[in-house]
Computed example of a mutant assay.
Amino acid sequence: MTFTAPFYRPLLRRCLGYVLLVGMLAGCQSSATELPAARLVASAAPTTADSATAIMPSLSDSLRLTPLEPLAAVPASLHQAVQALHTALGPEAATLRLEVLERACVGYLNLRKFGKISQPGILAVADMDLPSSEKRLWVLDLRKAEVLQNSHVAHGRGSGHLRARRFSNVMKSACTALGFYRTQDTYQGKHGLSRRLRGLDAGQNDNALRRYVVLHAADYVSQQHLQRHGQAGYSRGCPALPPDQYRAIIRTVGEGGCLYLSGPGLESKWLNPEVAAQQLAARGWR
């Protein structure tokens, strides 16, 4: 049986239209920043071309943390103050590495000095090098040397499995972006109460608002999920929080607070120890 050109042209056009539609849908990304389930498979790899970050992990996770060199040229007075703070925080901050806390405090003091944050004494720190099976987010009261909140927190599905290994500021990368953030206003989203985040490190996390990177609750960070899977699930870049703690965390950090997401390879202009020491001497942890 022979088909003439008029016969198969409409069929060909319909097929091409279907292929284009599927391609468009595959490239779309919701403005929401989480996945409904905790799974990381090759077929879920983001389609963005981010040559600086390999999106999907190819090696098994190791629990060995990435070595973190102490900050250079930290004045003795500042270093001693951070050491004293670390000791005073007690057992709840036992897994918060001193090197991470020192960077977080230096950044906080710089941001206070230049008016980039407005919540005095409140600092949220997440060590994204720790596995998601551990409580790796702390909200601290620096003035009282107290841990106000300590919880699990998810990383982006593009950043790795148990541990986050790749970080990106690129749209649709589904990666966590490291650096310092200012906590913004709250709103009622599809996951209830959420708090927007503004990235303060140019080129590293300053796409946060456009990527809809926010603090919000997620079932894949619940105790039930952690008990069943042994780790938190994955977001599309948000530091997603446990459903039983997210309201308290969002309320505690407030608007205008400082959030520091720490991880390997982070460089930030806010890590200036000399300025931080001057601010501490002049204003304390306020």
Rank of each mutant, 00 (worst) to 15 (best):
E134H: 15
I117S: 05
L148A: 15
G115D: 01
S118F: 08
E134R: 14
V147C: 12
Q119R: 10
K144Q: 15
K135V: 10
W138F: 03
N150L: 04
L123P: 01
L140S: 05
I117L: 05
D127E: 12
V147Y: 09
M128I: 15
L148Y: 08
A124W: 02
P120K: 05
V125K: 04
P120I: 13
F114Y: 09
A126F: 03
P120Q: 13
V139N: 06
V139P: 06
K144S: 15
W138S: 03
R112W: 01
L142R: 00
K135R: 12
S118W: 11
K116L: 09
A145Q: 09
Q149T: 09
K135Y: 03
V147W: 08
V139E: 03
L123Y: 08
W138I: 12
E134P: 10
Q149A: 03
K116W: 05
P120T: 14
E134S: 14
R112V: 00
K116I: 02
N150H: 08
A126E: 14
I122K: 10
D129N: 14
S133T: 13
L109A: 01
W138T: 06
L130A: 07
D141Q: 05
I117C: 07
G121T: 14
P120H: 06
A126Q: 05
S118L: 08
P120W: 03
Q119V: 15
A124F: 03
G121N: 07
S133W: 11
A126D: 10
L123M: 06
N150T: 06
A124S: 15
S118Q: 09
G121D: 12
Q119E: 05
L137W: 09
L148G: 09
L148W: 13
S132H: 03
G115N: 06
K144R: 15
V125F: 03
V147E: 04
S132R: 02
A145R: 08
K113A: 12
Q149H: 08
G115M: 01
W138D: 04
I122M: 14
S118G: 14
L130Y: 15
Q119L: 02
R112N: 00
P120N: 09
L123C: 06
F114L: 02
K116R: 07
L130T: 08
L148K: 06
A126I: 14
K135C: 04
M128D: 05
